[in-house]
Design a protein around this nucleic acid. Sequence first.
DNA 1: TCTCACTTGAGATTCATTCTCACCAACCAG
DNA 2: CTGGTTGGTGAGAATGAATCTCAAGTGAGA
Lengths: 141, 141
Amino acid sequence: MESEELRNVGLKVTTPRLKILGLLENAKSKHMTAETIYRQLSESGEVIGLATVYRALAQFEAAGLITRHQFEGGQTVFELERGPHHDHIVCVRCGRVEEFYDKVIEDRQREIAEKLGFTLSDHALTLYGECSGGTCTAKNG
Amino acid sequence: MESEELRNVGLKVTTPRLKILGLLENAKSKHMTAETIYRQLSESGEVIGLATVYRALAQFEAAGLITRHQFEGGQTVFELERGPHHDHIVCVRCGRVEEFYDKVIEDRQREIAEKLGFTLSDHALTLYGECSGGTCTAKNG
DNA sequence: TCTCACTTGAGATTCATTCTCACCAACCAG
DNA sequence: CTGGTTGGTGAGAATGAATCTCAAGTGAGA
């Protein structure tokens, strides 16, 4: 139950928050912008202000329910915090986002940070390229 | 001579471009925002519009003279393209930026992109952590 | 020096995000 | 179940980074 999730992180259970969380859990595309969420909610008849979407997303992020990714080109997407860590590859033409995980890279990162005298707390790895074939035509995926 | 660099990449040699390029070459901090560049030029008495700064930086980037990096927090910094490719590790406490290059990671990235059906055009890898010892105290380095 | 295409500066504009504020709804007490 | 308090909400204004517009300016070849 989504209300549980909200209560667990100390957020009051409200209709907008439930709708937004529900959308994130059921959306076909895992990575959504605030605008996309707002538009999809509007289309399903919900009257939820854009400001509320941004507010809720910020709170969810602070609570660790979702993660924010800032890709180049000003595209900021949110993703439900589920499953293991992964990085992203973004198509610069159609905006499609794929996920990947590579142990070699992960390990190297830690080694590099250590060698430079840093205690690694986080990292952002995003690859940019063009995806091939018919998948890359639409405006989004 | 900076005018050479401009001519070589097919840009007309103008005062604003020379000033901006010169600032990038002499600045104490390698990574600068457009705003910072604009402010520093203004402070040294140059009358250069912010729009011109953005335009010039975009042109320099297109010409390969400089590189654009988008770190967390939406801060976009520019850096003179000198020496080989490298990625960054940023101290989340003091803001210090170190550079590194790792062939293993570079190679893996290309392999991953290929495996996923992407033609890699670029990548952004930034590590975040805390740098150790006395180096990490000031507000910047 | 003259000319013209390319540049520039100031301000308007855009776009994503955040803020403001009057109104409203969730939750606890009764 | 109901009313009060407190925090949440929506609409639109405000912000800030970046881009565009356009009249005026300037580099560089003739």
